[in-house]
Structures are given as structure tokens and as C-alpha cells.
Computed example of a mutant assay.
Amino acid sequence: MEIGSTARAHGVRLLALDEVDSTNSEARRLIEGGERGPLWVVAARQTKGRGRMGREWLSPAGNLHASFIISDFGETLVAPQLGFVAGVAAMRALVSAAGRGRFGLKWPNDLMLDGAKLGGILLENVIVPTGDARAPAASVAIIGIGVNCANAPDDLPYEARALAALGAEAPSAATVFAHLSDALVETLEIWRGGAGFAQLREEWLTYASGLGADIRVALARETVEGRFETIDSSGRLVLATSDGARVVEAGDVLLGPRPIAAGIAR
């Protein structure tokens, strides 16, 4: 694994490991030990890979398992936008590396290929002491990105796909990572602690799966159905429902036909 030339020029470093429990967990340990980034932690294999909401992330060799440590990005309030910054970077990297294929983003953090899950983004925030009495704590963000490059699991409740499905010209994990490391530097420069989020939001929407269509969103206590209108200036999902606009802070987007007895709440 090597980072791209643009990333190197911006002082981004790389820690490449053969095996780790989770690149996000390793990044957290490094932060607790004083690391502030910018640093990529990449592993050939993960033994306890994690996805969103504590879900297991299967991590066979040949796929990309990477986490980026970043500090000095601005106010903690804007940290959730980093997931969208990373999503746009991932799309740029995949298009650049693969040169073809129908890539997309499923709100809030899934990477898609031909309607199947290709990867995901796991954003975590670590509060660290600063030693400054005026501002005693600061945030360090971890942007975890996993991409099915060589293999995709086949025992999931949803369809998953790997870049290998593109055929002989499919890029390797190393190739995707080199493009991704450069693309993330570029999107972070546009974002600038939230100042450029509007521009990235527009680009994110060009890749949005289900935009303009009827979708379902599984929440903690209900499943909401409506037309996917947009994401707002904070990155929240905006649905047009029979009861009016519904803004969703967090949930799982469900695409495809509605189940016959889904118990949908409108």
C-alpha cells in the first residue's frame, strides 16, 4: 500500500499493517497515545472489523480496510459532515481507479456498485485533552472506509458486490487506496471545516442512490416511507411523505420493492 502523490505532498502519512482487530480501533489507540494525524491506518486483514452501529464488518484479504486520522478540522459540530466528505472522495477514487461501473452513495454511509453494497464509511470522534485551560478538550476524527475489492460476503440480508465483478480490469485494493488518499485530501480542501460543504453536498447528490424515488427508512421505532427529496445543509435526509416533509437525522435507507407486510409508518 502507498499513499498518492497529492496526499504525500500534504504531509499525510501511512501505517500499513498485515493484520489488526480493526483499523478504527487501532486509530483510536494511536490517538489516545498522542497521534493527531493526518495518518492513514491500513490493514491487509481485520479480525474484528466494525461497521455502523457496532455491526460486524467482514474483512477478508484483498479488500480495502483503512482509517484516516484527522484533527484541526474545525468545530466539533461539523464533524458529522466528514462522512459526506469521505463519500465524495470515495466516489472520485472509484471512478478514477475503475474507469467504469455504476457507483453510488446510499445515505448516510454506504458505497454502492450496480445497486449492491460495495463498501461503507464509519465515522468516529475521539475527545482528547488539549492542556489549554481556555479550551480543555478537542476532537480528533477517525474516518474508516471499507471497500469490497476482491471479495464480497454472500450471507448477508442484502446484496453485496466486489470490484472484482468488473472483470479483469478491476482495480486492486492498493490502487483504490492510492486514489482515495489523494481524493480525500482534495475534498477536505474543498470542505474547509464546513465552509465548502454546500459544494460537496451537490456532488454527493449526483451519486445518491434512490434520489427522487420512493424509499423506506428504518428508524429506531418505526419505518418511514416517502420520496427522497434531498439532504439538507447539515446532511440530514429529507423525505416528502403523505404527512409533509420529514427530516431524518439517522436511520437505515431501504431501497427496492416494499415488503408485502412491512408495517410501514407514513
Rank of each mutant, 00 (worst) to 15 (best):
H10T: 06
L17V: 10
G119L: 03
L94R: 12
K117C: 04
G62N: 09
A61W: 07
F103S: 08
L58Q: 15
V42R: 01
G83Y: 00
H65R: 02
V95F: 11
L15Q: 14
M91I: 05
G11Q: 12
F84Y: 13
A135K: 14
L94N: 04
A93V: 15
A43L: 11
N24K: 03
R50F: 09
L30N: 00
F73K: 06
G101K: 10
V88Y: 04
E26S: 03
R36N: 13
R36E: 15
E124A: 02
L14I: 02
N24L: 01
Q81S: 13
A79P: 07
D132Y: 01
S25D: 12
V12H: 03
G115A: 05
G87E: 05
I69A: 01
A89T: 13
K117S: 02
P136I: 07
V41S: 07
R8W: 08
L17F: 11
Q46L: 12
L118A: 02
L111A: 03
A93P: 14
S67M: 05
L14C: 01
A43V: 09
A89K: 08
L113K: 13
K48L: 04
D18H: 14
R45F: 05
D72I: 08
L64A: 10
G11E: 05
L118W: 05
G115W: 00
I70Q: 08
L123F: 03
A43Q: 04
M53I: 12
E26C: 08
L14K: 01
G83I: 02
G37C: 13
R55S: 10
F73A: 11
A89E: 06
N63Y: 05
V20F: 02
P108N: 14
D21N: 13
G49F: 01
G74F: 12
A98V: 07
R52C: 02
A44M: 08
D72Y: 06
E124V: 06
G115Y: 00
W107H: 11
A27P: 07
V42F: 01
R100K: 15
R8H: 10
S67H: 04
M112Y: 08
G115T: 00
T76I: 15
G11N: 05
R55P: 01
E124I: 03
G74I: 09
G54F: 10
L77C: 10
H10Y: 14
W107V: 13
L58M: 06
D18V: 14
I127D: 09
I69R: 02
L17R: 13
R100L: 10
A43N: 02
K106H: 11
A43Y: 12
